[in-house]
Amino acid sequence: MVEITDRHIHCVYFQFDNPNDLKGHCLLKDENIQQGFKPCCEYIVLRPFEILAYFLKHNHYCEDWECADKKAVEYLDRAGFNTYPRIVKK
């Protein structure tokens, strides 16, 4: 069995303004989170990016995580999916 990450930062319910700041807010439980890389709750729902990257790596479409992450981002951009919270490009 392959375990998938359980960190706040990978959950769709974790909202943050600055990806370099580990603080955020859990939309589901309406509570502040001080450390985005700490384990999330039992209701975690992975962001589309995380699911795609794990699929690409574990099914050997990519040899390493860098490749999997790059291909996941490329696909989401090409398909126009929201990467929630939406990344604003300036």
Rank of each mutant, 00 (worst) to 15 (best):
K71T: 06
P48L: 09
K90C: 13
K89Q: 14
G24R: 00
Q34C: 05
Y75G: 06
N59K: 05
R86E: 15
G80Y: 03
F49P: 00
G80C: 07
T5R: 01
I33P: 03
V73G: 01
I51P: 05
R7K: 02
I51L: 15
V12Y: 07
I33R: 00
L76N: 03
Y43L: 09
E50F: 12
N82L: 15
N59P: 01
G36A: 04
F16Q: 05
T5H: 00
H8S: 00
F16L: 11
L22P: 02
E31C: 13
F16A: 10
D6Q: 14
D21S: 03
A72G: 10
E31I: 10
N82P: 09
V12Q: 11
I44N: 11
F16R: 12
P39H: 10
P39Y: 11
A53V: 10
I87G: 12
R47C: 11
A79D: 07
G80P: 12
Y75E: 06
Y13L: 02
F55L: 11
K29A: 12
K23R: 11
N59T: 14
L27N: 11
F14M: 10
Q34N: 11
E63L: 11
K38Y: 07
I51N: 05
C40H: 09
E63A: 15
P19E: 02
I9G: 00
A68N: 04
A68Y: 01
C26W: 09
H60G: 01
K70Y: 08
K23L: 04
T5P: 00
H25C: 05
E42Y: 14
D17N: 06
K57W: 06
E3L: 13
A72C: 13
C41Y: 12
D17G: 14
N20V: 06
L76Q: 04
I87M: 13
L28R: 06
H25K: 12
L76A: 12
V88P: 02
Y75N: 06
I51M: 08
D77N: 09
H60Y: 04
G24D: 02
R78P: 00
D69W: 13
I51R: 07
N32R: 08
H10A: 15
R86C: 14
R78V: 12
V12M: 09
K70D: 10
W65L: 08
W65I: 08
I33N: 01
V73C: 10
F81N: 08
F55M: 10
H60V: 07
Q34A: 11
L52G: 02
Q34Y: 02
K90G: 15
Y75T: 07
Y43I: 10
C67H: 05
A79Y: 03
C11K: 02
E66V: 09
C40T: 01
F14Y: 13
F81G: 05
Y84F: 15
N32S: 11
G36T: 00
G24H: 00
F55Y: 15
V12E: 14
P85N: 09
H8Y: 09
E66R: 06
R7A: 04
L56P: 02
